[in-house]
């Protein structure tokens, strides 16, 4: 007996796979990114279906709302010549196919060996899903206690990425007029206005 949730699952899963295929096969990179966004979206749907609503919404917010926008930005502003993009395709195809075939074979062998059976060699299991505790509360509880250390270091990594972006790209250009808000606010009437008495017929 299928539950209603199953139907929703199949819908999301089918859309996910379809749009993921589209990402690979679409000719126009712009369409690829748009389909990628659709993929993220469906993945988020699956997460929510699993009961991981926080991760699902985060996926939408972070990947769809921020990262993919940056992708689009870059793609929109660079001039892509589609002919050049597709030029090397035929020559790379064989090596690509070989790599793909090898990976596929490995997956099959691994599957045959029961790698994906889900059995563990230990008696340890994942933490049981808490009852009646919101996702986000549960995450917060472990993130700021047990995982505090890697969490903080991850923050440092982001800091480094930010420093890097500034160091490698920021240039102080000469001849650009910048707004100095403080100077604008501090401007007084005496600074900018002078009353000159002009005698008739003489000019200034």
């Amino acid at each position: 007996m299928l539950a209603f949730a199953d139907l929703v699952f199949y819908m999301f899963a089918a859309m996910l796979l379809g749009s993921a295929m589209g990402v690979i096969f679409a000719k126009n990179p712009m369409h690829c990114v748009l389909l990628l966004i659709l993929t993220f979206f469906n993945a988020a749907g699956l997460f929510i279906l699993l009961g991981a609503e926080f991760i699902g919404l985060l996926l939408v917010m972070v990947y769809v709302g921020a990262i993919a926008v940056m992708f689009l930005f870059v793609l929109m502003t660079i001039d892509i010549d589609f002919a050049v993009l597709k030029e090397g395709f035929a020559s790379y195809l064989p090596s690509g196919l070989i790599v793909g075939a090898v990976l596929m074979a490995e997956l099959v062998i691994a599957g045959q060996a029961g790698l994906f059976s889900g059995a563990r060699i230990s008696t340890l299991t994942a933490m049981p899903a808490p009852d009646g505790v919101e996702n986000i509360r549960a995450l917060g509880q472990v993130l700021f206690t047990h995982y505090l250390f890697p969490f903080q270091v991850a923050a440092l990594i982001l800091l480094v990425a930010m420093i890097g972006a500034i160091v490698l790209t920021h240039r102080r250009r000469e001849g650009v007029r910048r707004q100095n808000v403080m100077a604008q606010i501090a401007r007084t009437r005496e600074d900018s206005l002078s009353i000159v008495k002009v005698k008739p017929g003489q000019g200034i």
């Binding site: 917010m61 926008v69 689009l72 996702n135 986000i136």
Partner: peptide, 16 residues
């Protein structure tokens, strides 16, 4: 439970 997050997520879609 995550209404605020949902609002943020959907409002970030408009840009597309």
């Amino acid at each position: 439970n995550l209404g605020v997050l949902y609002l943020l997520a959907t409002s970030s879609l408009g840009v597309y």
